[in-house]
Write a protein that binds this DNA or RNA. Structure first.
Length: 740
DNA sequence: GCTATCAGGCTACCT
DNA sequence: ACAGGTAGCCTGATAGCG
């Protein structure tokens, strides 16, 4: 790599420095970048003060700023509460790393981890008490499968009768020290690593061996381990963020995702409930090893992207592993602002109070987004989907939207979309149904730097994509994905963010507004070519159904290109793709089924029903299959008449989304179940916890605390009826009384 | 005291 | 801590009824 393994800010001798790990060594670096913020005002605070002349992002005019520098992040933090300072947040916490990276672009390439990275891939199995759903840190480990770069699989496991995992852990640490890994690779870092550490602590085994400098690993409140000199790659993070899996996998678990990528295992994974029965057997070892093979399989798919990002963005690996849209935006846009001597004088929230500080109800949006609706419901065959490729970033680049070209001139009464061309600018009138006003946005004709940047990323994307198609070389695929993310998330994605210092709201408003016009244009073209053909649309994609014999892709694209130029008064590089499906079943906006070959793709919360009980999910899937294959549904209905299913089929689940204190409504299901699980089952309460529960006659109850007799059958029967109605609105409903 | 309706909170989805 | 948009479930408040 051209970058270090990790870098973290440390206060060292009263000065903020960076602790940098590369090639197995630690070094403390003083980059001379002090934590700082800017202000318009001459503040009388304890800091090094200087004046800076720069372009203010809010007006794009030259302005004099005061710059205040502090010895430590803490000192800055204590002074940075006033709301009249700028860019201070980039010096706080871990973002100080990014402050360094923006101000000194090659700060990290001076410390390249040039040695080969040493990986430790592992997966642990743990005993679960017979009456419990999940193990706790009191339960012994029964098997650890692992390997390093040579991929020779090893396993350490307990004999059935052995009640202590002390020896197992000591052996694992011995192996760990031999490997001396740089990167721990796991699937779900909040389980395996904290479990190993906590089991060591429970056994009185020192945990200092895990780090490269004999310091103890630190477990964060979110149960993530920080180990000096070592970074963690949680492959689950990559799978969770992978858009291409949406609609194609049942869940983001190791098995579902590796199956999707055609992993050929030696065996079907063992079900969790059987793990404890197999202690000390070859079955358990094989199962444990197979999971590590699945882990390696997915690692090979996702790792190149991580390492590429680190090198490409010139950031340490630990930052590439923890990249978010916000941070990506800071880096990608920060580079542009630095080159142009621009200071972000406030967040979007501060610079555009008319958009972000309006009186509105909780949860209401700040401005109007995409066009989403459904025109017709039911079964259609065949099915087509026309969609814009990279619609939002392309609008940004094609319409030249950028902080140096785009100005929110004024608001007018809510009216119609229109464009007025002047000598040096286009004026866009964008009606916004959320703001209930028309926003008048001026865009200069001189090239804007963000528009050029997005164009550069999009061009790279299509070049690399074409090269990948031609050569099959995965490096091109990696680069193509990276460019797409930089255009989509890095630049466009942050423009509408209230809290991002570099976001520029008029770009987001204009992009969405023009996007709505583009979607409507395509809807109108399709409905005009094939009357009443459009079924459902969401943002940039439009489903329509017509007879295959009249479908003509070329006619659609020709008409689209013609009308696009007419509407916007210039030649635009906006393109559409058209996909086809055998059939579709459309229920509500964003909720539908698609059939392609023998595969059914489920879309939307009503169809996926992930949080619902198994009997509902099974019923949905059976009806979906029948509907899309034009098969009768009566026999399916009969199966659900008596609700004669085992207890676990009645269990629903909900995830605790935030810490307890943040719940305004403490009576909502998640906090209620969390409180109960802590009280009755001793489960540690934390966000991300999933609770399985059923409906009893009077209330909801945790699965562990109920029995089949207590189930509220009427509740589940109502659910069955709701699903039956979802799939048919006439026949079944008329029949229901007789059927019941 | 019962039922219907509505708003708000929350989670799970989609682009 | 990228954004907005839709759907569905739940609770508690309120209105209408008798």
């Amino acid at each position: 790599m051209n970058v270090p393994l990790s870098a973290t800010p440390v206060s060292y001798g009263g000065v903020e420095k960076l602790k940098v790990w590369y090639n197995g060594k630690q070094t403390i670096v003083d980059t001379k970048i002090k934590p700082y913020f800017y202000s318009y005002d001459d503040l009388h605070i304890n800091a090094k003060k200087s004046t800076v002349n720069a372009i203010a992002l809010s007006t794009y005019q030259k302005k004099r700023f005061f710059k205040y520098e502090f010895n430590t992040r803490r000192e800055l933090y204590e002074q940075n509460r006033s709301g009249i300072t700028f860019e201070g947040s980039i010096s706080e916490g871990i973002l100080y790393i990014i402050r360094n990276r923006i101000d000194i672009p090659d700060v990290f390439t001076r410390f390249p981890h040039s040695d080969d990275l040493k990986f430790l891939f592992f997966d642990v199995e743990q005993f679960t008490k017979p009456d419990k759903m999940f193990p706790t840190y009191d339960d012994r480990l029964i098997s650890i499968a692992y390997c390093t770069n040579d991929r020779r699989m090893k396993t350490i496991c307990l004999k059935k009768e052995t009640q202590t995992d002390k020896e197992l852990l000591e052996k694992f640490i011995e192996e760990y020290e031999k490997i001396n890994p740089d990167v721990l690779v796991v699937y779900n870092k909040t389980y395996d690593i904290p479990t190993v550490i906590n089991r060591c602590i429970a056994n009185g085994i020192p945990t200092t061996s895990f780090s490269k400098n004999k310091t103890k690993p630190f477990l964060s409140r979110k149960n993530v381990a920080f180990i000096d000199g070592v970074v963690t790659y949680d492959v689950y993070d990559s799978a969770r963020d992978d858009q291409t899996l949406t609609g194609n996998v049942e869940n983001r678990g190791l098995k579902a995702v590796s199956d999707y990528f055609e992993f050929k295992g030696e065996r079907e994974p063992l079900e969790a409930k059987h793990i404890s029965e197999y202690i000390g057997t070859q079955e358990l070892i094989d199962y444990n090893r197979d999971d590590v093979r699945r882990l390696l399989w997915l690692f090979d798919i996702y790792w190149p992207g991580i390492e590429y990002t680190a090198n490409d963005l010139k950031v340490p690996l630990n930052l590439a592993l923890d990249m978010s849209i916000t941070k990506l935006g800071l880096i990608v846009m920060g580079d542009e602002y630095r080159k142009r001597n621009i200071i972000a004088d406030g967040r979007n929230y501060d610079r555009y109070p008319e958009i972000f500080q309006r009186k509105k109800k909780a949860g209401e949006p700040n401005y109007r987004g995409a066009l989403v609706d459904i025109a017709r419901t039911g079964f259609f065959t065949p099915m087509y989907k026309a969609d814009y490729s990279s619609m939002y970033p392309k609008i940004m680049s094609e319409f030249n939207l950028s902080p140096d070209t785009t100005t929110l001139l004024m608001f007018e009464p809510y009216g119609d979309f229109k464009i007025i061309e002047e000598e040096n600018a286009f004026i866009y009138y964008i009606p916004d149904s959320v703001l209930k006003k028309t926003m008048v946005i001026q865009v200069l004709k001189k090239p804007g730097f963000f528009a050029l940047l997005v164009k550069k990323f999009l061009d790279e994307r299509s070049e690399e994509k074409a090269l990948f198609k031609k050569t099959g070389d995965k490096d091109h695929e990696t680069k193509s994905n990276s460019s797409k993310v930089k255009a989509n998330g890095g630049v466009y994605g942050n423009q509408g963010s209230a809290n991002h210092p570099y976001g520029f709201a008029p770009i987001a408003v204009a992009t969405c507004g023009i996007g709505r016009e583009c979607a409507q244009l395509l809807i109108d073209i399709l409905n005009k070519l094939y009357p009443n053909c459009v079924i459902e649309w969401d943002t940039d994609g439009i489903f329509f159904s017509i007879d295959a014999t009249v479908f003509d892709k070329n006619i659609i694209i020709k008409e689209f290109n013609k009308q696009l130029e007419q509407k916007f008064g210039k030649d635009l590089n906006l393109t559409i793709d058209i996909d086809d499906y055998d059939a579709g079943y459309f229920y509500k906006a964003k909720n539908y089924l698609l059939k392609k070959g023998d595969k059914i793709i489920y879309h939307g919360v009503a169809m996926k029903a992930r949080s619902k009980d198994n009997l509902s999910k099974n019923l949905i899937q059976e009806l979906a299959k029948a509907k899309l294959n034009n098969k009768p549904t009566l026999t399916i209905m009969k199966k659900y008449k008596k609700l004669d299913f085992p207890l676990k089929d009645f269990a629903m689940n909900v995830t605790m989304g935030m810490p307890l204190f943040q719940y305004i409504n403490k009576n909502s299901l998640a906090p209620r179940l969390a409180i109960r699980a802590e009280k009755k089952l001793g489960m540690k309460m934390q966000p991300g916890n999933q609770y399985y529960y059923v409906k009893e006659k009077d209330d909801y109850e945790l699965l562990e605390l109920t029995s089949l007799e207590k189930i509220d059958k009427q509740y589940y029967m109502d659910e069955v009826i709701r699903i039956l109605k979802m799939f048919d609105t006439t026949l079944i409903v008329d029949d229901i009384d007789r059927w019941l």
